[in-house]
Design a protein around this nucleic acid. Structure first.
Length: 623
DNA sequence: ATTAGCCATGTTTTT
DNA sequence: CATGGCTAAT
């Protein structure tokens, strides 16, 4: 046995790492070395003869998966790329690349993100002659998603629509099939149904993955749970790790019950509880514990501190207004950096993305290097989506959503009317619109300015599809932005230079890659979390902070209505999740935490008077 | 077909 | 505030 694998582990951790076969449940409190245990367990398995490709490791973010593989390589010093590590959604996508033909898809399917989904739903509503009020597409998307995430009937999902969304969702499902695309929920439910319906496929995958490790198990939803159960073989070499106190995705269908019921799913499962906290100083831990103790729905437990008192510990700051709050934050961060701290050891969290602006402004003013995670995600930017739409239509001509996004971007005379003419023509031929464009021109379905524009568009797509633009995706993008006129039209825009820079960034990330389908899949599943900050202060939502740690943590806007958020104060369960959110934030800190709140805060342009979060009192009573 | 500009409107968290 | 949908003008 390589000593490094068991070195420095406490008895419980060691027991978890060395557990031989069968189901294993690890309750791992914040900072108790969860990642360490997973990585070492995988290393232990490999060291003991398990082939890396027999191991499936499901994590919450791609970054966590990457981290795990890097650390694994660090311990074993050998190539471990055979370990399949990624998110449930990434796994679903990978599975479907191989098995989509069972459900009538090709392996070059596209994955629709939320924006694509909403836009397609809006189209369905139009087709059904329903009037599309503001935000209604988002509501229906939500219903369509949550019903599949929780495996509930659409009719069982409570909503306040004045009509039945079922026909819309049915049409949406139909169109997805026609276009050959999947949405996020499909990535979980479709693999699950393929595995259920096809025993030979099921046993093939069960055979392949002899050992399954699942991180953040408390945040799995019913669809993920069901998929997982299909993958587990008779032997049930399944290890799940989680912490019910850190369940913060209930609104997305996560069911803490999954982890609490594990013992029922697998009678005789080994249960190991990691309560020794190696991360935070004692006073931080005390504050966190007294806060979370107010939750009723949890397994009672107590983290033990392995570290002593911190320099500052926990501080609560009351500020006059949000500007002051940001200024005070920037001031303290400045001092920390001046005293030799690395910006990378500082984390700033808040409940809603909207708060990032003030932080950015204050940091810019002081010249503090920072990186904001989340918010408007890179791949959701207009210019990026435009370029990707071209790539998508090249990869999959059936993707009507992509076509309607790029066929007139930038404007080239092909309006709504021309497009629907083309679509009608396509339907009469029983082919995807993108494939009848040439025919349509020959038959003069379109004429005049529209025909000129269409010719341009068609020749561009043909050049790329036929490889005339080279096989490197970066070169392809270059051709696209030149010939489509995207570049020229951006040059005339106010924030054009920024947008062009984003496209350049996209190109450099694509450079050297040639597999278009695979590239697009990566982009579709990539989250803002998956890049590294470098030497900068990390700024993000509390949700994003899960799984990370910093010496110094600042949490802003700890006020009633914001944390707990006003939209999450209906039930005591909602409040408990909000409390867990703050708990997660506090337990990210190694040395000290500053919680701040402002008496006056600008909300939608008007000032609002705030009162401190009730959670602050729950922390103070004990300290 | 396109775009400028007005109005209303509504705000969580993300794979 | 900032986004989005709509109207009116080109």
């Amino acid at each position: 046995m390589r000593p490094a694998i068991l070195d420095g582990l406490n008895p419980e951790q060691r027991r978890a790492v060395c557990y031989e076969r069968g189901p294993l449940l690890i309750f791992a409190g914040a900072g108790s070395g969860k990642t360490r245990v997973i990585v070492h367990r995988a290393a232990y398995l490999i060291e003991n003869g398990v082939v890396p490709s027999d191991i499936l490791c499901l994590t919450f973010t791609n970054k966590a998966a990457q981290e795990m593989k890097t650390r694994l390589r660090g311990i074993l010093g050998t190539e471990t790329s055979g370990v399949w590590a990624g998110t449930f959604h990434a796994f679903g996508a990978w599975f479907l690349r191989h098995e989509a033909h069972h459900v009538g898809y090709t392996r070059s399917f596209q994955i629709y993100d939320e924006a694509d989904q909403r836009s397609l739903i809006a189209k369905c509503m139009k087709e059904l002659n329903l009037k599309t009020e503001r935000g209604i597409d988002a509501t229906i998307a939500w219903i369509a998603n949550i019903s599949r995430d929780t495996l509930r009937d659409i009719s069982k999902i409570p909503h306040r629509l004045r009509f039945d969304p079922l026909p819309v969702i049915a049409l949406y499902e139909q169109k997805k099939r026609d276009f050959g695309v999947f949405d996020f929920a499909d990535l979980l439910t479709v693999p699950s149904s393929v595995l259920t319906a096809m025993p030979p496929v099921r046993s093939r995958y069960q055979n392949r993955f002899q050992h399954i490790l699942v991180d953040e198990y408390q945040d799995t939803n019913t669809a993920q749970y069901t998929l997982l159960m299909q993958l587990i073989s008779q032997e049930a070499n399944i290890t799940v790790v989680g912490d019910d106190d850190q369940s913060i995705y209930g609104w997305r269908g996560a069911d803490v019950g999954n982890i609490l019921r594990f013992k029922d799913d697998f009678p005789g499962a080994e249960v190991i509880i990691l309560e020794q906290n190696y991360r935070s100083t004692e006073d931080i831990l005390e504050a966190a514990s007294s806060l979370i103790a107010n939750n009723l729905y949890r397994e009672p437990k107590r983290l033990r501190a392995a570290r002593g008192k911190g320099s500052r510990g926990l501080e609560i700051r009351e500020l006059y207004d949000d500007e002051q709050e940001a200024a005070s934050l920037a001031h303290t961060v400045d001092e920390l950096i001046a005293s030799g701290k690395s910006p990378a050891e500082i984390g700033v969290f808040y409940r809603i993305n909207a708060l990032s602006r003030l932080v950015e402004e204050a940091f810019v003013r002081r010249g503090i290097p920072y990186k904001v995670y989340g918010g408007i995600r890179f791949y959701e930017r207009r210019e990026i989506k435009d370029v990707l739409a071209y790539l998508r239509i090249i990869a999959n001509p059936k993707d009507e959503e992509a076509l309607s996004r790029c066929i007139n971007t930038p404007p080239r005379g092909i309006g709504e009317k021309t497009l629907s003419e083309l679509q009608r023509f396509a339907r009469s031929r029983g082919k995807p619109t993108a494939l009848i464009l040439k025919e349509a021109l020959e038959h003069s379905v379109v004429r005049g300015a529209a025909a000129r524009g269409l010719k341009e568009f068609l020749s561009l797509v043909q050049v790329c599809s036929s490889g005339g633009a080279g096989s490197d995706i970066a070169d392809m993008i270059e051709v696209i932005i030149e010939r489509s006129g995207i570049k020229r039209s951006l040059e005339g825009e106010l924030d054009g230079p920024d947008r062009l820079m984003n496209i350049r960034e996209l190109m450099s990330s694509a450079s050297g890659q040639t597999d278009l389908t695979r590239y697009l899949e990566e982009k579709a599943l990539m989250s803002a979390m998956d890049v590294d900050a470098g030497d900068a202060v990390s700024v993000m939502t509390l949700h994003m902070s899960k799984g990370l740690e910093f010496d110094h943590v600042f949490i802003l806007g700890v006020e009633e209505g914001l944390l707990p958020h006003s939209r999450s104060m209906d039930t005591s369960l909602d409040i408990e999740e909000e409390r867990r959110l703050l708990y997660v934030g506090i337990t990210r800190a190694r040395r000290d935490v500053v919680l701040s709140w402002a008496r006056v805060r600008a909300m939608y342009g008007r000032e609002s008077f705030q009162i401190p979060s009730a959670f602050l009192a729950e922390i103070c009573h004990s300290t």
